[in-house]
Amino acid sequence: MKKKYWLAGLALLASVAISLFLRLDFSNAALILRELRLPRALIAIGAGSALAVSGAVMQTVLSNPLAEPYTLGIASGAAFGAAIATTFGWKISFFGLNAGAVLGALAVLVLLLKLVVRGQGRQSDSMILLGIMLSLTCASGLAIWMALADPLGVQSINFWLLGDLSRVGLATALALLGLSLVVSGYFWFFSRKLDAFLFGDDWVEGFGVSYRQTQRIAILLVSILVGFCVSAVGMIGFVGLIIPHLVRRHLRTSLHFHLIPLCFLWGAVALTLGDALAHSIGEPRELPVGAITSLVGAPVFIALFIRRRRGEV
């Protein structure tokens, strides 16, 4: 197991090095590194780890391997919440992170759980379908909001919705990274409670774990994390879905004591590399990182879906 941590740590170091030094203009290196690339690398680590850990926890507490902030509509809810908060001028934020996004994420997740009847829908695809419906509802709300908004600002909103790490400053990057560390640390500390969910919903209480309390706390923390993540960097899909599955396969176990820290590390690696691609392949143009993660993630999602249908996952 030690080797797996070493590998993930080295991969993170390598991806950060790539992100910091790929096509760097060395005549101005100190300034570019300090003002641009370092905050970007930190926010990529913070957002990537937050999304991957959130996906892993959601897949466990909702007993659904296709659950992640994006497929459940939490990310769309957060985007819609952030948009509404911006429209009405609700400036409840810290370090540039928007509380409207947290409320939007939380609202979608609570609504989703109300809609899914316990014991009937949770194990099936209906949760994902409901999540997609809620996601579409939020996307429609966003579309209406954008149609009414000043057209000059729409391009900026569009770019943010596709995932944009370039607008984040050092303070926001550190705040999100700190939040991701704290929430991931919480899940790691209580990993045994999460492990109880692996035996099936009906067995959770048998391990002395409160099903409802554990699930609710997990949902609340994930909503806060994803909400702040979306408000900082927009919608970045598939990291939360793909990384937990790949890490489980790599670990050959689903136990959360190892799953949470390794999801943290590999999520950070994935987004750091994705962002390095986003700001270097189209140079001097800037590409939205969410489009790159979706481009890679969508085929993997389809493969997972098909394999699940066949009962292989």
Binding site: N28, S166, P284
Partner: peptide, 23 residues
């Protein structure tokens, strides 16, 4: 009207910067 990165501007080092005040 292309989107460009801040780094690309730093690399090309302009003599002047004009900011069109749209919003």
């Amino acid at each position: 009207y292309p989107k460009v990165s801040r780094e690309a501007v730093l690399k090309r080092n302009p003599d002047r910067i004009w900011i069109v005040d749209e919003s």
